[in-house]
Amino acid sequence: CFKERTRSLLREWYLQDPYPNPSKKRELAQATGLTPTQVGNWFKNRRQRDR
């Protein structure tokens, strides 16, 4: 489970760009304390949910 602060940050970035490039994923990973893989998976799952 991600912290609420982490989730809200991911949601904000998702609204700006649902397909972040690898450098954006690394930047988000540093900002949230997650790994780039976790960030990528979150975006993938979120895109799937929005279908």
Rank of each mutant, 00 (worst) to 15 (best):
C1W: 10
C1R: 04
C1D: 15
F2I: 13
K3A: 09
K3P: 08
K3L: 07
K3W: 06
E4H: 10
E4K: 11
E4L: 05
E4R: 04
E4F: 10
R5G: 12
R5K: 07
R5Y: 07
T6H: 15
T6Q: 13
T6S: 08
T6V: 14
R7D: 10
R7A: 14
R7C: 08
R7Y: 14
R7M: 12
S8F: 10
S8D: 13
S8R: 14
S8A: 14
S8I: 14
S8G: 10
S8C: 11
S8W: 10
L9Y: 14
L9E: 06
L9N: 03
L9V: 13
L9K: 10
L10M: 08
L10D: 00
L10I: 01
L10W: 00
L10A: 01
L10Q: 00
L10E: 01
R11L: 13
R11N: 12
R11V: 11
E12R: 05
E12L: 07
E12G: 09
W13Y: 14
W13D: 06
W13G: 10
W13H: 08
W13L: 11
W13V: 13
W13Q: 14
W13S: 13
Y14V: 01
Y14W: 04
Y14T: 00
Y14H: 00
Y14K: 02
Y14C: 02
L15Q: 14
L15D: 15
L15I: 13
L15S: 05
L15Y: 15
L15K: 09
Q16Y: 08
Q16A: 12
Q16D: 05
Q16V: 14
Q16K: 10
Q16N: 12
Q16S: 09
Q16G: 05
Q16C: 10
D17C: 03
D17T: 02
D17W: 03
P18L: 01
P18M: 06
P18R: 11
P18E: 04
Y19C: 09
Y19E: 05
Y19N: 09
Y19W: 08
Y19K: 12
P20A: 07
P20N: 01
P20E: 03
P20C: 06
P20Y: 04
P20V: 06
P20I: 08
N21E: 14
N21R: 08
N21M: 09
N21C: 14
N21V: 11
P22S: 12
P22F: 11
P22I: 13
S23C: 11
S23E: 14
S23Y: 03
S23G: 13
S23M: 09
S23I: 08
K24C: 07
K24P: 01
K24N: 07
K24S: 11
K24T: 12
K25I: 14
K25C: 12
R26N: 15
R26C: 13
R26T: 12
E27F: 09
E27M: 08
E27T: 04
L28G: 02
L28P: 03
L28R: 01
L28T: 01
L28V: 11
L28D: 03
L28F: 13
L28Q: 01
A29R: 00
A29I: 01
A29H: 03
Q30G: 11
Q30L: 11
Q30F: 09
Q30T: 14
A31L: 15
A31V: 11
A31P: 01
A31F: 03
T32M: 05
T32D: 00
T32W: 02
T32A: 07
G33I: 01
G33L: 02
G33C: 04
G33F: 03
L34T: 03
L34M: 11
L34W: 05
L34F: 02
T35H: 03
T35R: 04
T35V: 02
P36E: 14
P36H: 09
P36N: 02
P36V: 09
P36K: 13
P36I: 12
T37R: 14
T37Q: 15
T37L: 10
T37F: 04
T37D: 15
T37W: 07
T37Y: 09
T37A: 12
Q38A: 08
Q38Y: 02
Q38T: 07
Q38P: 00
Q38G: 03
Q38L: 05
V39H: 00
V39E: 00
V39W: 02
V39G: 03
V39T: 05
V39L: 02
V39K: 00
G40E: 12
G40N: 15
G40F: 02
N41E: 13
N41P: 05
N41I: 05
N41V: 09
N41R: 15
N41D: 06
N41S: 10
W42T: 07
W42P: 00
W42F: 03
W42D: 04
W42V: 00
W42I: 01
W42S: 00
F43M: 03
F43N: 05
F43D: 02
F43H: 02
F43I: 04
F43W: 01
K44V: 06
K44S: 11
K44N: 14
N45E: 11
N45A: 07
N45K: 08
R46N: 07
R46P: 05
R46W: 02
R46E: 11
R46G: 00
R46T: 12
Q48W: 12
Q48S: 12
Q48P: 03
Q48H: 13
Q48M: 07
Q48R: 15
R49L: 08
R49Q: 14
R49E: 14
D50G: 05
D50I: 03
D50E: 15
D50M: 03
D50T: 05
R51F: 11
